[in-house]
Computed example of a mutant assay.
Amino acid sequence: MVKEAVEEAKKQAEETNAEAADEDVTKENPETDSEAETEQEAEEKKEKKSFFKKKNKKDPKDEKIEDLTDKLTRQMAEFDNYRKRTEKEKSAMYEIGAKDIIEKILPVIDNFERGFQSVDEEKRKDPFVDGMDKVYKQLMKTLEDAGVKQIEALGQEFNPDFHNAVMHVEDEEAGENIVVEEFQKGYMYRESVVRHSMVKVAN
């Protein structure tokens, strides 16, 4: 019995010493557990960061779509600019062509007017003269509808944009720089001059 009691006491002493040793180790290294936890948290943060980085990175398909969309937008803008430029060029070409035709018709109008000036008043009612007068009026109406109008010159102040001065005269009755005579009528097509008026300017 004494022997068993001694062995029991010995076991208890060993167990007590082992627990004390564990406590000493814990006291000596109190940061060990916290360091392990800190490392684990750091790993988790790294994983989260890498996860978000992967998520923020654009998909190649999305990049391709954006690239194609940008190219399409640029091409549409270029096409719109080309269309506007073409329309402007067509309009300019049409106006140039119209002015060219009008310039060729103007001498015909001049001849009509010269012919009427040479006709006596007695012959104004002649059927032929009357017929030519109607043709002349119809021609002028057609040109007017197309945008052709005569430049006002007689009695107007001289304007080099519309008038071409070929003679100058001193006239006390006329104002300064005033057109007193028109040798050849001038015409405009829309807003541009087809032919300047040939005039005499006073003072």
Rank of each mutant, 00 (worst) to 15 (best):
91 S>Y: 02
82 Y>S: 10
63 E>G: 04
75 Q>C: 11
199 V>N: 01
66 E>A: 15
58 K>Q: 09
135 V>N: 02
61 K>E: 11
95 E>K: 15
162 F>Q: 06
156 Q>V: 05
110 D>Y: 10
90 K>T: 07
127 P>T: 05
68 L>C: 04
167 M>R: 14
64 K>P: 02
188 M>Q: 09
111 N>H: 12
2 V>R: 09
40 Q>C: 05
139 L>K: 04
116 F>H: 03
32 T>W: 08
64 K>N: 08
41 E>G: 05
32 T>R: 14
143 L>W: 01
103 E>W: 05
150 Q>V: 06
82 Y>N: 05
111 N>L: 11
10 K>H: 08
166 V>K: 05
107 P>A: 04
60 P>H: 07
100 D>K: 12
139 L>S: 08
184 Q>E: 15
199 V>S: 02
12 Q>C: 00
184 Q>Y: 04
23 E>S: 05
201 V>S: 10
90 K>Q: 09
95 E>H: 13
164 N>P: 01
152 E>Q: 14
55 K>H: 13
5 A>W: 06
64 K>C: 03
194 V>K: 02
26 T>M: 10
92 A>P: 01
144 E>N: 10
153 A>I: 08
181 E>G: 09
130 D>R: 12
171 D>Q: 07
54 K>R: 14
129 V>I: 13
85 R>N: 04
143 L>N: 04
59 D>E: 12
65 I>C: 04
85 R>M: 06
39 E>N: 11
23 E>V: 03
118 S>W: 03
159 N>L: 00
50 S>Q: 14
138 Q>V: 10
102 I>E: 01
152 E>Y: 02
14 E>H: 08
168 H>Q: 15
129 V>W: 03
71 K>A: 13
6 V>T: 07
19 E>K: 11
163 H>Y: 08
72 L>E: 06
185 K>N: 04
187 Y>L: 02
2 V>Q: 12
93 M>I: 15
167 M>N: 14
1 M>P: 08
114 R>S: 13
55 K>E: 13
41 E>W: 06
159 N>G: 03
9 A>Y: 08
157 E>Q: 12
30 P>I: 09
32 T>E: 14
72 L>R: 11
28 E>R: 09
95 E>C: 09
156 Q>I: 03
107 P>D: 04
63 E>H: 00
95 E>L: 08
63 E>I: 13
139 L>H: 02
36 A>Q: 06
118 S>K: 14
79 F>T: 12
77 A>N: 10
170 E>N: 14
202 A>D: 03
101 I>K: 04
63 E>Q: 11
1 M>A: 12
136 Y>V: 04
87 E>C: 02
114 R>C: 07
177 N>G: 13
141 K>E: 14
70 D>P: 00
146 A>Q: 06
4 E>D: 11
119 V>L: 04
141 K>G: 09
190 R>K: 14
151 I>W: 00
173 E>T: 05
7 E>D: 15
108 V>W: 08
76 M>E: 15
162 F>Y: 15
10 K>M: 10
46 K>F: 06
141 K>R: 11
87 E>H: 05
15 E>L: 15
80 D>T: 09
32 T>Q: 13
144 E>T: 07
53 K>Y: 08
10 K>S: 12
113 E>N: 15
81 N>L: 10
